[in-house]
């Protein structure tokens, strides 16, 4: 865990700021409902792929943040940059990497 955090710090130059707790609640809601529409309520996949820790292993944060913010052209994954900033997306990726309760 320490190691990934350290790597993160290097790659994002430690500029990332945690979203406020109010914002975190909003993002959690977004993840469950809006992302859940394609990735499944429990993120086990639907029209979009599963987003469980195993599925994201080996994929760098920047890559996933980029996918979330910019979407993927030619696929159904839309860009979310109108709804969140990089810090929010990083926080979401960290949530996704945690084993769901």
């Amino acid at each position: 865990m320490k190691k990934t955090l350290l790597l993160l710090c290097i790659s994002l130059n430690c500029l990332a700021a945690e979203p406020t707790s109010v914002r975190q609640a909003e993002l959690r809601h977004l993840l469950k409902n809006d992302c859940g529409a394609c990735h499944g309520l429990t993120l086990k996949g639907g029209m979009g792929p599963a987003l469980l820790p195993d599925n994201l292993q080996g994929k760098p944060d920047e890559f996933l943040i980029n996918t979330i913010l910019q979407g993927r052209k030619g696929t159904a994954m839309p860009p979310w940059k109108a709804f969140m900033n990089t810090d929010d997306a990083l926080w979401l990726v960290r949530q996704l990497r945690k084993v769901p309760q």
Binding site: D34, A37, C38, G71, A76, P78, P79, A82
Partner: peptide, 11 residues
């Protein structure tokens, strides 16, 4: 045309 589309947040 797909490249003129707005993003689709829900199918």
């Amino acid at each position: 045309k797909p490249d003129e589309q707005l993003p689709i947040y829900k199918m």
